[in-house]
Amino acid sequence: MPGGAHLDPEITRWMTRARELGATMPDLGSSDILAWRRAERELSDAVAVEFVAEPTAGCRVDDVVAGSVRMRRYRPFSVDDRLPTQLFLHGGGFAFGSADEVVNDRIIRQRAIDTGVQFFSLDYRLAPEHRFPAALDDAVVAFGWLLDHADELGIDIDRVGVGGVSAGGGIAAGLTLRLRDLALPGPRHQLLEVPAVTMTPSGSSLDLYARGFGLEDLDLLRELYLGDGASDGAVSELYASPVDHPDLSGLPRTLVMTAQFDPLRDAGELFASRLAAAGTDAAAVRGIGQVHGSSALTARVAGARRWQVVAANELRSRLAAVPSPQVPLDAVPLSARVVS
């Protein structure tokens, strides 16, 4: 293994299985993106059924349509009317994946049950038909729509976060920045898992784990997402590379979760460092022995189950915990204070 990597034996099995199954799917890599996407979905679901644990019961699932975007809602059984809520963005290299994939469905369903957080898993538009900033625009629309419809959706507007995996983590981080820069209400918390926070990944992890660790062809994905750079420029490409944004202050509390053998690892950890240096309450943890896509392999990999525990702890203690008042007490005029 390159880089002296000690891969979990079950992760090796997963990669082998994906390779075997993939070999029977001629449309993978097809010039017809729709055919390619169908094949990726079929492969993803077939592997997920074996490697991602089946969720327990305890949550209601339905679809909601917000104008031009669709979200799958996971509402945990609860006596509360208003729940802490997260807008979740799935992974898939900006060109693949959907809220309906088995892997996303199982992981988010279980997370809702484990944390009591309500999730809206967004089916954002994919590249290359819809290049940057289409996915980001969808996220902005979805986030605003959730806040606007908080009453009917049972959302506690003081406890709304964003989260995402891989490409979805990058979109989530871009969304938070975009909302801040537009002076729109933003999330209270970010959970970014193996996020793609830069279009020009850097650090030693990029070379060490470029081949044989389940995430390759980063250049191709960048090309699909950004195109030839001839976007109309209405939205700065900085929002596709949050790590390079010159102002990372005033952002919500953030946890970045990285995988040891992931080419995107160093950029993700750099993002957490830069957030912290800018005064944002940000931290990072690294899943040892994990690769880019392994955090979902909860049926087989101890490190994936542990990952989900850490993610659930984070959401419970830093998103779902009762919020401190929006305005500090000493900012309220004395006459307005209620003395009990």
Binding site: P9, Q260, E269, A272, A283, V285, R286, I288, G289, A302
Partner: peptide, 22 residues
């Protein structure tokens, strides 16, 4: 700690390791 986690996994033990940055 991290080598021990890898060695346990290789021996078939249900082991995991998380590194806390900073």
């Amino acid at each position: 700690g991290e080598k021990f986690a890898a060695a346990l996994r290789a021996a078939g033990v249900d082991a995991s390791c998380v590194r806390y940055l900073g």
